[in-house]
Amino acid sequence: MSIEPGFEIPPWDMPSVSRARMRTMAAILRDPNPVHWDDELCNSLPLGTGKRTINQGPLGLSYMVNMLHEWAGPESIRRIYMTFPKIVLSEDAVTAKGIVTALNDDGTVECDIWLERDGEKLLEGKATVQLD
């Protein structure tokens, strides 16, 4: 398969962001922030999330890692840079997407990557990926 700038990376779907996984993640990360696991507290904050908890940033990022792994292999990522303009909530259906923007001389490619919910970009970043 020939990869050129403009190539669309096969998307990766997370059909429903799980609050149970957020809790496991919080325990492993020693993350004290209750917005990831206390739905009553989320409901009491002026965040407009109701009882939905807020996904950890690294988990949202990981969906794009999974997309890149499925496309280019589990050792392919050389760099990943992510910004977090919007939050991801429990029960969200999100899709990781990406597009190749440039080819490098060393066999790596530059990509724009993002996470979408109903067409809205929640996370946006860039990745450098090694292709075989």
Binding site: P34, L45, P58, I80, Y81, M82, T83, F84
Partner: peptide, 11 residues
Amino acid sequence: EFSIGIESYDW
């Protein structure tokens, strides 16, 4: 904890 916002992660 609620006052923290993420700008970016670079790995």
